[in-house]
Design a protein around this nucleic acid. Structure first.
Lengths: 157, 157
DNA sequence: GATAAAATCACCCGAAAGTATGAGGGGGAA
DNA sequence: TTCCCCCTCATACTTTCGGGTGATTTTATC
């Protein structure tokens, strides 16, 4: 808080100093004008330059900085190195349950729903429900898409 | 009634107007005098104001907006660093045609027969025939199996 | 030009896949 | 305890897939 106040006073002091310097400069220039009668244009030009600068400075100091939001899509490449490491982050992001992942793995092996059901000792309808949930969570329509995506993001070897 | 009243006061109104005009004239003359006396200061002030405004305008127009980036994570294909080499021997052993391989690749991307048909500008029935031949040649029953096997033996990245 | 393979398309039918909805038990978190 | 999610199963329905069969056209090859 104190530092803020100091910073504000600092700016004020700086501004005052600049103003003072400016007045001195103007007086000096006026004196020159009196002495050299034909230097009015130079004086006007100096004023123009100085006050243009002042305007720029003021604008920079007093306006809120423009903020432009840029959305950058960061593509996450998964390393297909031989030792497969399950992408747990993706798994959690998608909200996949253990059972669903299990079904997904068997799907990737090319098993039919009926075969998966038999292998997991559950009914065909259960596998259908699981696969529906999988497709929903993975945002795909077909098992082939699910498998392709699963391999891509490291849910499956 | 209003017109009568106006007529009666006509003289008075005229007189008032003249008086007002006179006062205005005097003021204007006085202002002119003031301006004449301090014409240089006013001119300089005008330049100062105008160029301060110019400076502000320039600063606002020319400052680059601060860029704020929002990172959106997106999963994409696995690392393409590993170069895919098509297993031409397996391709020939299976007796796969170019078109069939093409269909197989689109299958692996998770497209439905209908979508593949649209993409290749042929009818759905044609794709069905192709896929049947593919399954026959690859000795599989389902597209998921075909894709799995194709990846395994190097027909597909 | 004949032949063979590939590519195209069509129709039918049953199987599999996928959608929608509901329901019930279990377990963990608020 | 209540709430929410997971797992399970079911019914009903639509869509897609795959098998079987047959046909025409194109392309390549001898």
């Amino acid at each position: 808080m104190i530092s803020k106040l100091l910073a504000r006073n600092k700016t004020n002091l700086l501004y005052g100093a600049c103003l003072g310097a400016l007045v001195f400069l103007l007086n000096w220039l006026e004196l020159r004008f009196v002495i050299f009668e034909h230097s009015f244009e130079i004086y006007a030009g100096a004023i123009a330059i100085i006050f243009t600068s002042l305007g720029i400075w003021l604008a920079i100091k007093l306006t809120k900085p423009k903020v432009e939001t840029v959305v950058v899509e960061k593509y996450l490449y998964t390393d297909p190195a031989i030792p497969f490491v399950l992408n747990e982050k993706a798994l959690e992001d998608l909200g996949m349950s253990k059972r669903e992942l299990e079904v997904l793995q068997l799907m990737a092996e090319g098993l039919s729903n009926q075969e998966i059901a038999r292998q997991l000792f559950v009914s065909l309808n259960t596998i259908k429900t699981h696969s529906s949930k999988i497709f929903e969570k993975m945002d795909v329509q077909r098992r082939t898409q699910a498998v392709e995506k699963a391999k891509r993001i490291g849910l499956i070897p």
